[in-house]
């Protein structure tokens, strides 16, 4: 079945089997392997991407359900060599250890910060409910998102 969508600004048109999951389309057809597969059962959030700006778990969406949408993956966050403030935050605040959960964390945080530019710590933790990290204990992930929120607020004000 023909699937038309935009990933990270690039328009694509591919023939896919209707049962193909969006995460496999992103990784195996679009060759964007920054989006990870953790649990495959919509629990861990490693596969989180943005569809039209909303964070979703791409292991629980058929690729054909994303027809006509705009998808953003972790590869679409940086502008050339300039890291997105969230990526910078994870770097500066040591928001990752193995990094497996990181792309999903960043995409969920991007949805949060688009809705709420100044979240409280509790709001950040609540937003990350659907993203599991087995390494960090979350402390530095929260700090990374606070770093990004502050940076994005100042650059908007400037």
């Amino acid at each position: 079945m023909l699937l038309n969508l935009t990933i990270n600004g690039e328009q694509r048109s591919d023939n896919v089997d209707p049962r193909m999951l969006l995460v496999h389309y992103i990784r195996d057809i679009a060759n964007l392997t920054g989006t990870h597969v953790g649990c495959e059962t919509s629990i861990c959030g490693a596969c989180t991407v943005l569809i039209n700006g909303s964070a979703v778990k791409s292991c629980t969406i058929l690729a054909v359900q994303a027809d006509g949408t705009k998808i953003t993956t972790i590869e679409g966050m940086a502008e050339g060599d300039r890291l997105h403030p969230l990526q910078e935050g994870f770097w500066e605040e040591h928001g990752l250890q193995c990094g497996y959960c990181t792309p999903g964390m960043i995409m969920t945080a991007a949805d949060l910060l688009a809705r709420n530019s100044n979240p409280t710590e509790a709001e950040i933790r609540e937003a990350l409910e659907g993203n599991l990290c087995r390494c960090t204990g979350y402390q530095h992930i929260v700090k990374a998102i606070q770093f990004a929120a502050a940076k994005m607020r100042t650059s908007k004000a400037a």
Binding site: S42, I61, D111, E129
Partner: peptide, 9 residues
């Protein structure tokens, strides 16, 4: 209900 990602879908 669920988490942000689930509520978006």
């Amino acid at each position: 209900i669920g988490d942000i990602q689930v509520r978006n879908r």
